[in-house]
Design a protein around this nucleic acid. Structure first.
Lengths: 341, 341
DNA sequence: ACTCCATATGTAAAGGTTTACATAGCATGG
DNA sequence: CCATGCTATGTAAACCTTTACATATGGAGT
C-alpha cells in the first residue's frame, strides 16, 4: 500500500482495469465517465492512495496552482491577518500561496520575477503600490495580478482596499458630534494615495458641518511616529490650537500622544486624538486609541477572490473594490475641554 | 524578444547552435562544458530571456523547490517574524516557501498532506508540536521535516527552538539579584514541553540560590491571560504571598498584572512580574514587561538551514538546536517592597 | 437490416526538462 | 601507427499528466 514511490495514474489505471485517460477523466470530468467505471476508478484510487502529481499536471496545463504574494515586509503585523484571508480563499479553490518579501529591494523583486517567468505562479498579489521588479518592470510579462490596499502604480491592475474617504469621514463626524470644531488633520499627502483620500474625508466632514477654513488646521507629515511628535511641536508655536488631533494613521497618532504627554497634557481631557488603521498596539496604549479598523481578513479574502475570477474569466469584473472600514471607539476622544472650546 | 510564449531550452539550443543537453549542462554543470560553448549558450540565454521552466524541472527531478510551512495560526504575530528568517534562508538557496495554516483542524491538515503527496513541496517546516494530519499521520510519507519551537511529538523530526531552561534561569537570577526570595512560578506543565522546561529553569535558579522549597510557590495554570488572573486570586487566599511573580509566558504575565492592578497594587512597587516570549505588546504595557525575547528571525533562519541540510545530506546533523534567548529588562521588576521582603 | 449518432473508452502526442548512454575527436603512451 | 582513454557533445528516454483524435459499442430511426 504505502510503497516507497508514490502511485501514479498508471497504477490506478492498471488496478481499475481501464486506460489512464479514463482515470484522468474520472477525476476531472466525472460526468464524462460511466457510473460503473467511475466507481472502479475511485476504488483503485483509494487502494493506491493516489494523488495527482501537481508538477506533471501544471506542466501539461501550462499553469500552476500557486499564487505568489509579494509584500515589502512580511513582518508587518498588518500582513499576517491579510494572509489569513488570502490563504483561506486560495485553498478553498485548490490554490496554494507562495510568499515573498522584497524589503523594497529591486534585486529581490527580480528574483520573484524569475519565479513568475518560470511558470511557478499562476497569479500575483501585490502589497506594494509599485511593481517591485526594478527596471525590468516595463517589459515584464506578468500573470493576472491584483493589488492590496493601494492601486498599483503603472499597471492596469485591479485592487482591493478600504474606502479611506468614508473611514476618515466617520472619524471627523465623531469628533464633531463630541463638540469639536477646531480639528487638526495631521496628514501625509506624499507617500500613499490612501493618505490623500483620508484627507479628503476630513475636508468633506468639515464641509458638511460647515466649519470654515479658518478653523481647519492641516499639518503635512510623513506618516511616522516622529512626524506626529513634530506636528505637536509646530502647532504649539501657532496661536490657534485645535481641540482634537485627527491623524492620518496610528503611527502618527502615537507620535502626537507622545508629544502631548511630554508637554504634560492629558488625553482626552485636554486634547482628543484619533488614528487610522487599528494597529495591534492601539488597544494597549494609554489611553487606548480611537481609530478606524482595517478589515484585514476581508481584504485578503476579496483580493484573492478577485484574482481567482481573473484567472478563470480573464476579464477583471471591476477595477477597484473598496471595503467600508469600521470605527473603533476607545478612550482617546472626549468632548473638548473648556479651555479649548 | 518578449514573445507571447516563453522561451524554452530548445530555443536557446537553436540559437547557440548546440543540443538541448548542452544547454542544460551549461546551466547546471558549467564545468562540464567547454568555455567557448558556455559563452555561446549564455549569449543565447540573454537573447531569449530564457528561464528554466520550474514545473518541467521539478517533474523530471522528482522534487520541487518549494518548502511547505505549516502553522496552526499564521495570524500569530510570533509567526511573521520567524517567517522572515525562513524566507530569507530559503530564497538564498533557490527555494520558495509555501504557507499553510491548520487552525488545529485535522481536515485542513489533510489538505496539506495532499500537497506533500502530490510532490509540491520538497520539505516541511512544522510550527506545531503534533503532526497536523489527523489519523493519517501514522501512514503519512513525509518529506524531510523540521519543527520550530517544539519537538514534534511522534516523529524523529529534528527541531529548532530556544533554550527555555537557560532563559528561565536568566529571569530567576535577575529576580534573586534584585533581592527577591519568595518567587512564585505561574506555570503550565501540560500544554507545551517548552513550558515544563521553563519551570526547570526556575527550580535550578532557586536551587543555586539555596532558596528552600518552603519559599517556592508554584501555581499550575494553562498559559492564558485568564490563568494569570486566576493565579493571583488563588495566591491571595494563602498566607504566604510572594514578592515576585515569574510567569511562564507573557500572556500569563498580562493576566497577573490585571489581577494585581484590580486589587489596587502597584507594579513593580508592590510586586514584581516577569514574562517570557516578548510578545509585541510587552513593550506597550504599563509598566512595560521584563521578559525573555525569543530570537524569532534567527530561529526561522536556523530551522530552514537545518531543513536544507537535511534535503541535501539526508542525515540530520543534529536532532535539536537550541538558541540562547536574551533577557529584556524593562519596568516590571524592582527590589521587593518592604512589606513583602 | 442498415445507417447514423451518441456515448464511453482507448491511443498517443505533447508539455520542458535532465541524464544515462552513445559517439566523436583528440591526445597520450607504447 | 595503433590502442586507449579522456573530454565535449549529441540522442533519446523518462518524469506524469491531459486531451485531441480514433475507435468501439449500442440504440434509434428509416
Amino acid at each position: 500500500m504505502s510503497n516507497s514511490t508514490p502511485a501514479t495514474i498508471e497504477d490506478v489505471a492498471r488496478i481499475a482495469n481501464v486506460s489512464i485517460a479514463t482515470v484522468s477523466r474520472a477525476i476531472h470530468m466525472p460526468e464524462k465517465v460511466a457510473n460503473s467505471t467511475r466507481l472502479k476508478v475511485n476504488q483503485a484510487i483509494a487502494i493506491t492512495g493516489y494523488t495527482t502529481n501537481a508538477m506533471a499536471r501544471s506542466l501539461r496545463l501550462g499553469r500552476s496552482n500557486m499564487i505568489l504574494v509579494v509584500a515589502p515586509d512580511i513582518g508587518d503585523p498588518n500582513f499576517s491577518n491579510i494572509l489569513i484571508g488570502l490563504e483561506n480563499e486560495a485553498r478553498s479553490h485548490g490554490y496554494g500561496i507562495l510568499i515573498g518579501h522584497t524589503q523594497n529591494d529591486a534585486q529581490r523583486g527580480l528574483e520573484y520575477l524569475k519565479f513568475l517567468n518560470s511558470n511557478q505562479a499562476a497569479g500575483l498579489i501585490l502589497f506594494t503600490g509599485i511593481l517591485p521588479f526594478g527596471h525590468q518592470t516595463m517589459t515584464a510579462r506578468l500573470p493576472p495580478s491584483v493589488g492590496v490596499f493601494e492601486p498599483v502604480f503603472n499597471g492596469g491592475i485591479p485592487y482591493v482596499g478600504v474606502d479611506d474617504i468614508a473611514g476618515a469621514r466617520k472619524v471627523v463626524d465623531l469628533l464633531i458630534a463630541e463638540g469639536h470644531r477646531k480639528i487638526a488633520f495631521i496628514g501625509d499627502s506624499r507617500t500613499r494615495l490612501a493618505y490623500s483620500r483620508r484627507r479628503m474625508g476630513y475636508e468633506a466632514g468639515m464641509d458638511a458641518a460647515e466649519i470654515g477654513a479658518g478653523l481647519r488646521i492641516v499639518f503635512e507629515g510623513d506618516g511616522t511616529i516622529e512626524s506626529g511628535r513634530l506636528a505637536v511641536e509646530q502647532l504649539f508655536m501657532r496661536d490657534t490650537l485645535p481641540s482634537a488631533f485627527m491623524c492620518v494613521n496610528d503611527q502618527t497618532a502615537i507620535g502626537v500622544m507622545i508629544g502631548l504627554k511630554a508637554r504634560g497634557y492629558d488625553i482626552p481631557g485636554d486634547f482628543s486624538v484619533t488614528g487610522f488603521d487599528d494597529v495591534p498596539q492601539a488597544v494597549f496604549m494609554s489611553p487606548s486609541l480611537t481609530t478606524i479598523r482595517q478589515p484585514r481578513t476581508a481584504i485578503g479574502k476579496q483580493a484573492m477572490a478577485l484574482l481567482l475570477e481573473l484567472l478563470s474569466d480573464g476579464e477583471p469584473p471591476e477595477t477597484e473594490i473598496l471595503l467600508l472600514p469600521d470605527l473603533v471607539v476607545r478612550n482617546s476622544v472626549s468632548a473638548p475641554s473648556r479651555a479649548r472650546r
